[in-house]
């Protein structure tokens, strides 16, 4: 069963990425306005994203995507699946 979907095996969520490491967007489980907004910022499947820093309590988290830095709240980042680089 597990071997059937090898691509899912290495998927984790964007919020789990450590500071300083990179990943590639796999799929977005966000809805409505937020989904649109985040996609318009360039978080579309296949895009390389790097986690640059976390806020004082680990939230929000700042990512670089397409040469810009965007901060997201942890719960929102947790709804974005990524492949580890």
């Amino acid at each position: 069963m597990q071997g059937a979907k090898p691509k899912n095996k290495s998927q984790i969520t964007l919020s789990q990425i450590k500071e300083g490491s990179a990943c590639t967007i796999a799929e977005l489980h966000l809805e409505g306005l937020l989904r649109r907004r985040i996609m318009d910022l360039g978080f579309v499947p296949g895009t390389a994203v790097q986690c640059v820093r976390k806020g004082p309590t680990g939230d929000p988290i700042a990512y670089t995507v397409r040469g810009t830095t965007i901060a997201l709240r942890k719960e929102d980042a947790a709804k974005i699946n990524v492949f580890m680089a």
Binding site: D40, L41, G42, V65, R66, G67, T68
Partner: peptide, 9 residues
């Protein structure tokens, strides 16, 4: 000019 990709969208 420093983040063209996003801006071109």
């Amino acid at each position: 000019a420093t983040s063209l990709e996003r801006n071109l969208n």
